[in-house]
Amino acid sequence: MELLISIMVGVMFATGTYLMLARNVLRFIFGLILISNAANLVIFVAGRLTAESPPLIPDGADFPAEVVANALPQALVLTAIVIGFGLFAFALTLVYRGYQSMGTLMSDQMRLAEPREEDQ
């Protein structure tokens, strides 16, 4: 499963990159979401996959009796998801606000701060 997920993550990175390179900033955001999902998966898979034994300590025991899933990457990914959401929400409002003031979603037409030389 690790190998196949690695390949799938590669596809997610590739499509995410392609989307982020688009002129339309909405596509850029789609790419951002894809890449953050892919990055979360990378962290998760790098900690190895363990099926059907969540990192919980059973009642009455001091530590997990059998092998349980690696808890460290899970903790990292959990916060990464929430932060990723914050980043996404900010980027979305930025795009929204940019569209309102500039009337376009094309990144190369958003040139309020740096007008093209021929326009100056």
């Binding site: 690695s6 590739a14 190895r48």
Partner: peptide
């Protein structure tokens, strides 16, 4: 909107990510 250069870079990024992850594993 087909952008071959962008597609090439994207495929490169995807392939290296896969290879790095496999190597790590």
């Amino acid at each position: 909107d087909w952008r071959p250069w962008h597609a090439a870079v994207s495929v490169l990024v995807g392939v290296v990510s896969t290879l790095i992850l496999i190597a790590v594993l």
